[in-house]
């Protein structure tokens, strides 16, 4: 394994540890107590002794350092603890809800990427200046629309007015259309903006003039010379936008009433279910770190200039 890769994985481990520690401190500092919320309910009729037993079984009254060391050790071995509210292991809660969120996020991201590429290439290729101006103004519009509002508007228009997509019991894939759109539009905007700027920049490079002098048409130059060079810097932005995607999924799932990590997060906040929240933070951080590591490792695949440098430093 190359030195570079070892270094990058080391960084990733430190980031994850920091994410765990910071979220642990913040969650402990929150007022409120999940156990009391759930078990102090008079209808349950539990006595103080029984509650003390429950508290002991969750080990919430041991010193904070012990709790920290204990739960860090558990996380390292893949044990995320128990959800106080649901009374099942946190890993079960996550696994049950992960697939739907993953599906939403993946489609959201793919559509966002397609939209960004379409917007930026159309704005370069289209000859009519007013159409070009309209297309170029789309990202600014998309970026300024809040996800929750967009979601509500999409439901209003497509479900209630046009009646294209049923609100109650839509088909599995039908149900995905509007949430994906609500998630994709705001994420496509920064991608499109960066891509448009990159394309403009690459078009002024001397090698584009050389390609034109060979007799290449505008679209030949765009596809064979501009695309790859313009997409390269966009990779990093795409990795960072992944964080945006997770945040967007929480809101989208809430607006569209979907099950998933987003709705679990929302409920866990309401119930102060700290173990669940802690696991979600660490899970999100892990996903974010892995995506960005993959992005960095992909660079040399697309950019030959980085290959030799890394080989030299390997």
């Amino acid at each position: 394994m190359s030195r570079y890769l070892i270094g990058r994985i080391g960084q990733a481990v430190i980031v994850l540890w920091a994410a765990f520690t910071v979220s642990f401190i913040l969650l402990q500092a929150l007022p409120g107590d999940a156990i009391l919320i759930k078990f102090l309910n008079p209808e349950l009729g539990l006595g103080p002794e029984q509650i003390a037993d429950i508290r002991a079984s969750y080990a919430v009254d041991t010193p904070i350092w012990t709790q920290y060391a204990h739960s860090l050790g558990n996380f390292l071995t893949g044990n995320f603890g128990y959800s106080v509210h649901a009374g099942v292991p946190v890993s079960h809660v996550l696994l049950a809800n992960l697939p739907s969120t993953l599906r939403l996020a993946t489609f959201g991201f793919l559509i966002a990427a397609l939209l960004a590429v379409a917007i930026s290439f159309l704005s370069t290729l289209i000859g009519f200046s007013w159409i070009r101006a309209v297309i170029q103004s789309l990202p600014a519009l998309f970026i300024s629309v809040p996800v929750f509002w967009l979601g509500i508007m999409l439901i209003q228009i497509f479900s209630f007015q046009l009646k294209l997509i049923p609100v109650i019991n839509p088909g599995e894939w039908e149900a995905l259309i509007l949430p994906v759109a609500a998630l994709a539009l705001p994420i496509s905007a920064p991608l499109a903006q960066v891509l448009m700027r990159n394309i403009d920049h690459v078009l002024t490079e001397p090698f584009v003039a050389v390609a034109r002098a060979k007799g290449a048409t505008r679209s030949w130059v765009l596809w064979r010379h501009v695309t790859r060079n313009a997409l390269l810097p966009t990779l990093t932005i795409a990795g960072i936008l992944f964080g945006e995607l997770l945040a967007g999924a929480v809101v989208t799932e809430a607006v569209f009433g979907l099950n998933g990590i987003g709705s679990v997060t929302q409920q866990a906040v309401g119930n102060q279910d700290i173990a669940v929240l802690q696991a979600i933070v660490v899970f999100s951080a892990t996903a974010f770190v892995i995506i960005n590591l993959v992005v960095d490792l992909l660079y040399p695949v697309f950019d030959p200039r980085l290959r030799s440098k890394r080989e030299a430093s390997a």
Binding site: E205, P206, F207, A209, V210, A211, A213, R228, N229
Partner: peptide, 18 residues
């Protein structure tokens, strides 16, 4: 390219790096 061709000024940026 076929009847008229060009030798550009700056060889370092006149070839596509990828």
């Amino acid at each position: 390219g076929s009847k008229i061709s060009l030798i550009p000024q700056d060889p370092t940026s006149s070839l596509n790096p990828v």
